[in-house]
Write a protein that binds this DNA or RNA. Sequence first.
DNA 1: TTAAGTGCAAACGGTTTGCAGAATG
DNA 2: CATTCTGCAAACCGTTTGCACTTAA
Lengths: 164, 164
Amino acid sequence: MNTQALVNEFVAYLRSRGMRMTPERRHILQHIFSAHTHFEVDDLHVRLRDAGHRISKATVYRTVALLANCGILRSSIAPSGSSSEYYELVYGLETPHEHLQCQECGRVFEVADPVLLGHLRRIAVTMGYELVDHSVKIVGRCVELRNKGVCSKSGLQRPPERPQ
Amino acid sequence: MNTQALVNEFVAYLRSRGMRMTPERRHILQHIFSAHTHFEVDDLHVRLRDAGHRISKATVYRTVALLANCGILRSSIAPSGSSSEYYELVYGLETPHEHLQCQECGRVFEVADPVLLGHLRRIAVTMGYELVDHSVKIVGRCVELRNKGVCSKSGLQRPPERPQ
DNA sequence: TTAAGTGCAAACGGTTTGCAGAATG
DNA sequence: CATTCTGCAAACCGTTTGCACTTAA
């Protein structure tokens, strides 16, 4: 899969709804593709700006919503403590991937596990549903970290209890 | 498990932090216990009001945060389209439970599956983590519903595509 | 008696929207 | 050219907070 395929997919979606491809939409899509991580809209906006594109935050919000609607993006889980929505690229994703969240630093890692999907499908069927989508979050404590009190993946001290 | 055990747990937590039990906190906790579903703060506030308790929304927010901090509540998944945080009672929960979300009406059902937990634990270990918590959301389409275009569980028509 | 809790209303921050001007097909 | 898109700034809305008053211990 490459950027062009993504652009084509998006253009087809836009056409089908009487909408237009624009330079702004193209830049946003290409940037999401090249970054290929989960992201929040504000970050995406800043990075586009750093890359020299003057695209308003409103347009980024509007475009991300379109991309989510046509199945190129989907909303993902947020690092703990965050109050904004996170998205990830799903178009052309070969293997389903789950999320492992570090309890200390809140960061999210992606994990592939081919067996899990079948298991979830079976659960859905038991309830009279056909599995359409899923999301799995595992919150874990790094063994090394639990002993030392420092998160080696982020270099951060163990965060204090939430205030109040 | 009963309300008293919950209250005791909460009082112990409050004591340990130099905080006090109040009538407001007691009413909120008891109401959460008797409703025993996942909920959003605004709903909880309205229901408390309907039950005759004049508790401000600020106090409900503050108390829910405390209950989440001490492990009696945890944040749960929200029905699709909702922009507010949902919580659920976890204190004394015997079996781990996952969430099945109806793609049409967005409602969330709880599902117990004892095997899944072991699987998730294995995934965590593979990544060098010890499983501390998890959440699983399965999005499904009810077979009957897909044919008829109507959600039999909610009585709602299939919702239109999100606007824009 | 005094530190903590409550209600109120204002502040906050992420997201959405109305509108006038720019640009696509 | 008609219609859609963009940028801007204001509106929105769930949540948090400052403050004066009330209350638990």
